[in-house]
Design a protein around this nucleic acid. Structure first.
Length: 581
RNA sequence: CGGGGUAUAGCGCAGUCUGGCUAGCGCAUUUGGUUUGGGACCAAAGGGUCGCAGGUUCGAAUCCUGCUACCCCGACCA
């Protein structure tokens, strides 16, 4: 752990507390980070850290370093500014959208601000490692990243510039990667426990633009989270909505004859099912998407389900699906609002059917003619040569595939992720080593990220009261806050100064409120800063040779004999650390 | 990128509809004094190109046009 400034006087501390909530802050973490004097916004999604905010970040980083070193990581530092050609090698210069900030240097050379460092680490490693004897290896860094987010929000929860710990491992085999992936997972569990994130879930996730197959997200459970998670009641099943599935049961009935019905002006599932006196689950829904090349994809799902665009995008291997416009839909012979998979130009459209349609009977579908639908559509009979898969979005209450219990919905903030990347980058960027037979091989990669600022914000989301954050001792800006009520009183002033010096001597981190503010004012500031342990020096107690001790968030106070304060506070601190070991 | 909103002192806001003398209020700040266990009191003081650029007018924070920044919802996305 790096050396720290152990002590600080409040009278000298830069970063004022603010009484009122900032107008534009909505989440508790955003409000308290601003009000407590931890961070200040410079531009949308771009923040400066004030001293106590920086101390928290430094402590979180120290915990991450320890755990990365424990799983044999080697710390490096790679640049924020990278040449575009490195990203051209991997193909991401073209495939990643506008969130990658591109610019030219003075010579007109294309450059980028790195949003992640797979390319940089492969560039580094391919010239340093050439033998199987050097593998496996893991490199990590704690570095600034930039993502040109369309919409920054929620204080530190979604920002454009941020600090991230990212780690990359290289292996000679998939099994070696899988073994290491497990160790990384365990390291992450330890990290989030140690920083005091009490409610973190590791869940199955969608690999998105990173490529690769197996991946997990570490979610801080919070009502202000941006991601939707489905969990079983016992939390044995946990999955992001993007990949979650349920044990859906569908029932086949004997097919009835196809029947064309007049449904004037009824376009939506609700309108059609109500008009025909049926339920939404008796209908089939058609949703049209287009890929980047303007190719039409016809997704068909039962009327009571929603298409899961992540599942669909993964299935058709196209990351950038968009809703198709009416003109494109008509160009294949379909009628928007009354679309049917039958009687359309099969050469111009790819049809993907959800199991809910394939395994149900006698559904109402469009007739590709304005104001007409068909009743009694049956997949097996009425359509041929289409792809059937799961593209349904889980709904709260759907049955868990593992436990058979109803799934419940949670919100989460993604604070970390781990991926089994495979050879996507090492292969594209020609990273090779020689195996024991002298044969050239491509290393298998894993990557592992943690958002440091987001972690700080998430801890507040999970640990605060109406007055401010309640920091775990492991990342609190100081371990102890010392408050002097009326330090102009000679006895109070003397005892406070002596205590301050003695605490420093004992190696305890203390923030000393020496300002002589009114008690209430001082206590409110202390609560807003959220240091977990508080000592108060007052005239009344000093007269009795006593000091008051209180834990942040607790109701009760203790009175400690003055000559035992140092011993007692040290033991309380040790006890607090044990809670997060 | 679509929808909605905001921009006036360090922070939070009023004033704008209905144009008018010197642009206010609370908090914070400075000075002096009194206070000191859950956001004290008295007295005095400093602090503004009213987001930017044009226009209308005798006169614009206020009306008109354009722009910019920021926030919220959505789209997109590690």
């Amino acid at each position: 752990m790096q050396e720290f400034v152990f002590i600080m006087r409040m009278s000298q501390l830069v970063g004022r507390r603010i009484k009122e909530d900032p107008r534009d802050a909505v989440t508790p973490s955003h409000k308290f980070l601003i009000r407590g004097g931890y961070v200040r916004q410079v531009s949308a999604g771009i923040f400066s850290l004030l001293p106590i905010g920086k101390r928290i970040i430094t402590k979180i980083e120290a915990i991450i370093r320890e755990e990365m070193d424990r799983i044999d990581g080697q710390e490096v530092l790679m640049p924020v500014v990278l040449p575009a050609e490195l990203w051209e090698e991997s193909g991401r210069y073209a495939s990643v959208g506008p969130e990658l900030l591109r610019f030219k240097d003075r010579n007109g050379k294309d450059m980028i601000l790195a949003m992640t460092h797979e390319e940089a680490v492969v560039h580094l490693l391919r010239s340093e490692v050439s033998s199987y004897k050097q593998l496996p290896v893991m490199l990590y860094q704690i570095q600034t990243k930039y993502r040109d987010e369309a919409r920054a929000r929620g204080g530190l929860i979604r920002v454009r510039e941020f600090t991230m710990k990212d780690a990359y491992s290289f292996h000679t085999s998939q099994s070696c990667l899988e073994e290491y992936y497990q160790r990384a997972h365990e390291a992450y569990v330890r990290i989030f426990r140690r920083v005091g994130m009490v409610n973190t879930l590791s869940i199955e996730s969608n690999s998105g633009m990173m490529g690769g197959k197996v991946s997990h997200e570490f979610m801080a459970v919070s009502e202000h989270g941006e991601d939707t998670i489905f969990v079983s009641p016992d939390y044995s099943y946990r999955a992001n909505r993007e990949v979650a599935y349920a044990d859906w049961k569908f029932e086949k009935q004997s097919p009835l004859e196809l029947e064309k019905v007049h449904t004037p002006g009824r376009e939506s599932i609700e309108e059609v099912s109500e008009f025909l006196g049926l339920k939404p689950e008796n209908t089939g829904k058609a949703v049209f998407y287009k890929d980047q090349d303007n190719n039409l994809i016809f997704a068909m799902i039962r009327g009571d389900f929603e298409v899961n665009e992540s599942k669909l995008a993964n299935f058709v291997k196209c990351p950038g699906l968009e809703y198709a416009d009416d003109e494109l839909i008509r160009s294949v012979g379909a009628e928007p609002g009354f679309a049917s998979p039958m009687s359309i130009d099969r050469n111009k459209v790819r049809i993907v059917v959800d199991r809910s349609v394939a395994e149900s009977s006698n559904l109402v579908v469009g007739a590709n003619e304005k104001d007409y639908h068909y009743k009694n559509f049956n997949f097996d009979r009425d359509i041929k040569d289409v792809e059937v898969t799961d593209i349904a979005t889980v709904r709260e209450g759907d049955i868990c595939p593992l436990t058979g219990q109803p799934l419940k919905l949670e919100r989460g903030i993604e604070v970390g992720n781990i991926f089994q990347l495979g050879t996507k980058y090492s292969e594209a960027m020609n990273c090779r080593y020689l195996d024991e037979n002298g044969k050239s091989q491509i290393p298998v990669m894993g990557c592992y990220g943690i958002g440091v600022g987001r972690t700080m914000a998430s801890v507040i989301e999970q640990s605060h009261d109406e007055w401010g954050p309640i920091w775990p001792i492991t990342i609190a800006p100081y371990q102890v806050q010392l408050c002097a009520i009326n330090p102009k009183n000679a006895a109070v002033g003397d005892v406070s100064e002596q205590l301050y010096a003695a605490i420093k001597q004992a190696g305890v981190e203390v923030l000393y409120d020496d300002r002589g503010e009114k008690a209430g004012f001082m206590f409110n500031d202390a609560d807003l800063i959220g240091i977990p342990l508080r000592l108060v020096v007052s005239a009344k107690n000093v007269e009795n040779g006593q000091i008051e001790f209180k834990r942040r968030g607790a109701k009760d106070v203790e009175l400690w004999p003055l000559d035992q304060v140092i011993d007692k506070i040290k033991s309380v601190i040790a006890e607090e650390y044990k809670k997060f070991a």
